[in-house]
Design a protein around this nucleic acid. Sequence first.
DNA 1: AGTATGCGATACCGAGCGGTATCCTGTGAC
DNA 2: GTCACAGGATACCGCTCGGTATCGCATACT
Lengths: 193, 193
Amino acid sequence: MRRALLDAAAHEFARRGIDGASVDDVAAAAGFTKGAVYSHFGSKDGLVDALVEDRTTAYLEAGLTAVDGLEGALDVRARALGDRLSAVGTEQGDWHLLFFELWQRAVRAAEPGGVLGRQRDALRAAVADAISEHAESAGATLPLPAADLALVVMALTNGLAVERLVGPDDVAPDLMGRVLALLVQQPGDASRS
Amino acid sequence: MRRALLDAAAHEFARRGIDGASVDDVAAAAGFTKGAVYSHFGSKDGLVDALVEDRTTAYLEAGLTAVDGLEGALDVRARALGDRLSAVGTEQGDWHLLFFELWQRAVRAAEPGGVLGRQRDALRAAVADAISEHAESAGATLPLPAADLALVVMALTNGLAVERLVGPDDVAPDLMGRVLALLVQQPGDASRS
DNA sequence: AGTATGCGATACCGAGCGGTATCCTGTGAC
DNA sequence: GTCACAGGATACCGCTCGGTATCGCATACT
């Protein structure tokens, strides 16, 4: 089953590294043998490519969901967004481990227009749009261009995930929310938690 | 020469991955053969360990330098710090590639108290101290505990490095500084660039 | 029932790697 | 000048892994 192989690959690759996990390992984790993998994906690289496609799509959707349906003042929305992103990041420790590995591959391959790059651009644009709309509907002015803020949100998500994987207890669950709230706080607005 | 081998290892490991670069490759890049590596470090893991020690020490010192000798109002210092960190991050693209690989190893090994973890704690504590002192000497109140701010600085540095390696032009050079300035901005302080 | 199709298992190959054992050579002590 | 030694080169081993060729078997179609 293609689905089972992709899930097993995501898990094994995250745990042991893409180079560290053999095709045999992945197949065995899914209850199959190598033959199944080569029958479906042709090569190990083919499996990795399919995995990139699969997981980045899911990641993009998760990101879109996170910025959707926020209500209230802008800093309240920012806090809620931070909490959502933290929750997702905390429960899916494997994802970031895998993500950084795929990202490394993409950087080293240096082939512009890779799947990862495209999905990143899409996510960034979508988040930037959402931020703009949220700011407008909340009647607030953004302290930075929406595109820059989107980048900061992504960078913080990734950066805090790094720290969380080293020391899960070192990162307060509400840190992301508080930081984002500070970033969109209006000048002269003295509201502090 | 031990130094040459470490430098070559840093470069080769960053470019091709720790698993992707063979001991032969590293030695050749330094103008030697395998024998030199095994004579100095005993094993590939020994080389990696020595490299972790070497580079994290340098990184820690770079971090300490960055938070040192800042002057002026708190947000001015924050901006200057951001610019320094951006400059360092931009010119040393290789380091972050290597850092994430070493970080992955540490997370997967899951041996608490690794060198990387200790250096991270030290850096975080030092940055937190520096932030506290800067806040005090500038007569400002911090919107978040210094330890949390230190974590945010580190997370942003790493997160923006990720983005910069994917698309160098997507990250404005002054973004880090502006974000940090926003974070320490005093309520009621309407100064905006 | 017979047959075709395709997924997955099995056995095998070649290459590259980490590691080791041994040899070579330049350098310093006396 | 001789000797000892350490840093490094060379040759080699064994193992693991990606990849391939082939086979077996279940399902579906006629």
